[in-house]
Each structure stands twice: as structure tokens, then as C-alpha cells.
């Protein structure tokens, strides 16, 4: 769990232009607040025993167990199960909306940087796919310092623009991203979800572990405008003159209905789904990620135990 002491307002974080510094501040603050070891998931963590077979490294034989049972057993560690994570970042024009200092895209970019920092520290391979109606940037998953720097630079260079074409992008991502691994989709999901549910299902089947972060602006939540205004769709440029007081209720109902559907569909597909406001600290997202990672590793260990195979 995170500590309130290390919660930093994302609106203030947005003022930090150096993503690496920003990520370090957030991740270290987050990590220091965790009750568990900061090396959670490190390679030294014991996972299970298995009967010794010829060829196993004699260093991993548990000699105490041999003394008690007169049978040779080898130790297995979690370090052998490092994962590959791909971050899909929506950089369409709708992500540029902000009623405050940090836009949805700023928030998503900070979250992506923090996730990358965390993955880098845990020796996991990570990659990035930024998209709108086309793929804006693609960095295949790797794990080294140079790669990390490259990714942060790419994140820094991104700017929201153009429309979203979720189905096409998910289709391309399905072909492009290596199988197996963790998939984190960060978007505002302002797209009819029924159009993309099938592709997300496909992705979850192929990659098993999909994490969806939905980013929203507080104004989007409740249409908290106190005056009539002509709204211009940032992606389609369509206009609508609205009197917020008259449509707010209906607007909120429409929005609730949409995201309920997203939530329910994700639940049914066993996809982890998190909704974030741009005013929320990044810790929740990171914690959700760590939980998911732990869950993944545990499930893999269980799988290996059942099958008796090695990594």
C-alpha cells in the first residue's frame, strides 16, 4: 500500500519536464512507502523445490533438506520468471484535453515513464507503442539503460494529435507485439467499446496479461461548466452548443453507461481495469501494476509447479 506522505500531486509533477527525474521521484517515493521489500520480485527470491535431476547446478541443492529426507532437491527462484511488458499509449487529440494544468496525455505519459522506471529497476523488458489513428512510435521490449533512456526520450517527444482508430491499432498491435507478456493500455477510451472488445479479447488470449488504465479529466466526469459554451470535438471538429445545466445529467448518465460497459467487459475477460483522474496521484496506478505483476509471477510459478517444467 502507498503512504500518504509520498503522494505527489500530478499537476505539480507536470511541471517537471525531465521524465527520468520525474519517474525516479515518483517510483522511489512509491517504493519507499511500500511495506514489502523494494526487491520484491528480485531474482534471489525463493519460489519452490523440485527433485534434483542430473545436470542441475549443485549450488542450488538444498543440503539441509537432503539431511532431513535423504533426497536431493534443487531450489528454484523467481528470478527465472522476469516478464516482458508493452505499454500502449493513446496519443490522440482527445488526450490533450485538460481542465487543469496537466492534460490527460501528460498524466498518461508520466504514468508510462514511472511504469518504465519500475520495470527497468525490476530487470523486466519493456517497450512502447504510441498510437492515434496510426502508430506514432513503436519501441520493442528490451531491458537496458540505453533502451530506458530511448523510451523516455520518445515519450518526451510525443504530442497528442489526430483521431483515434482503436480497432485498427489493436489489430496492428496484435501482429506487432511479441506473444506472451504483459500489455498495459493507457487511453481515455472515448470510443465505443463494443467495437474493440473483440480485439482486446484476442490480445488478452495471446498475451494473457492485459492491464487497462483509463484516464479522465475531472471536467469530463461531471461536465462541470457553469456557462453555455460551444464544444468542439477535438478529434472530429464537430461543434455542439451546450447549456451544461440542462444536459449534465444526461451526459453523466451516458458516460457512466459507457465506462460501466468497459468495466464489465474487462471483468468478464479477467482484464485488470483501472480508472484514473488526472488529479489522482500516480501511486495507485503503480500499485495496481505491481499487484498485477505479482499475480502474474505467482500464476507462472503455479503453472510450472503443475507442469513440472523449468523456465
Amino acid at each position: 500500500m502507498s503512504s500518504d506522505l509520498f503522494h505527489i500531486d500530478p499537476q505539480q509533477l507536470a511541471a517537471i519536464t525531465d521524465l527520468q527525474l520525474l519517474a525516479r521521484i515518483v517510483v522511489e517515493g512509491f517504493m519507499s512507502g511500500l511495506h514489502a521489500s523494494p526487491h520484491f520480485g528480485a531474482s534471489v527470491e525463493f519460489a519452490q523445490y523440485r527433485p534434483y535431476v542430473q545436470g542441475d547446478d549443485p549450488r542450488f541443492v538444498d543440503w539441509s533438506l537432503y539431511a532431513r529426507t535423504d533426497r536431493l532437491h534443487s531450489k528454484q527462484f523467481q528470478a527465472e520468471t522476469n516478464l516482458r511488458c508493452m505499454i500502449l499509449l493513446d496519443c490522440s487529440a482527445s488526450m490533450s484535453f485538460s481542465s487543469m494544468k496537466a492534460s490527460k496525455f501528460d498524466y498518461a505519459r508520466m504514468l508510462s515513464a514511472c511504469l518504465a522506471m519500475m520495470l527497468f529497476r525490476q530487470k523486466d523488458a519493456f517497450g512502447l507503442l504510441a498510437f492515434h489513428e496510426e502508430i506514432e512510435a513503436y519501441i520493442p521490449p528490451r531491458m537496458n539503460q540505453q533502451h530506458f533512456n530511448h523510451m523516455l526520450l520518445s515519450l518526451n517527444d510525443l504530442a497528442p494529435s489526430r483521431k483515434t482508430n482503436f480497432p485498427a491499432i489493436l489489430q496492428k498491435a496484435n501482429d506487432l507485439i511479441p506473444h506472451r507478456g504483459m500489455l498495459i493500455i493507457i487511453s481515455d477510451f472515448l470510443h465505443p467499446f463494443k467495437d474493440i472488445i473483440e480485439l482486446i479479447t484476442l490480445l488478452s488470449v495471446r498475451h494473457r496479461d492485459v492491464l487497462i488504465f483509463s484516464i479522465s479529466d475531472p471536467m469530463e466526469e461531471d461536465l462541470s461548466l457553469n456557462r453555455s459554451v460551444t464544444l468542439i470535438d477535438s478529434e472530429t471538429n464537430k461543434e455542439a452548443y451546450v447549456v451544461p445545466d440542462f444536459i449534465r445529467k444526461e451526459y453523466q448518465e451516458n458516460r457512466r453507461r459507457h465506462f460501466s460497459q468497459v468495466r464489465e467487459e474487462c471483468f468478464s475477460l479477467e482484464i485488470d481495469y483501472g480508472e484514473f483522474l488526472t488529479t489522482e496521484p500516480l501511486d495507485r496506478g503503480l500499485f495496481q501494476f505491481l499487484s498485477k505483476r505479482k499475480q502474474i509471477l505467482l500464476s507462472r510459478s503455479a503453472h510450472r509447479t503443475r507442469t513440472g517444467g523449468g523456465s
Binding site: 460551444t230 470535438d233 455542439a240
Partner: peptide, 11 residues
């Protein structure tokens, strides 16, 4: 007054 909004899909 005009304002660029993320989407009009909920209007």
C-alpha cells in the same frame, strides 16, 4: 465561447 472538448460522444 468555444471550447475544445475531448469528445462529444456523451453529449
Amino acid at each position: 465561447e468555444t471550447m475544445f472538448f475531448s469528445s462529444l460522444m456523451f453529449i
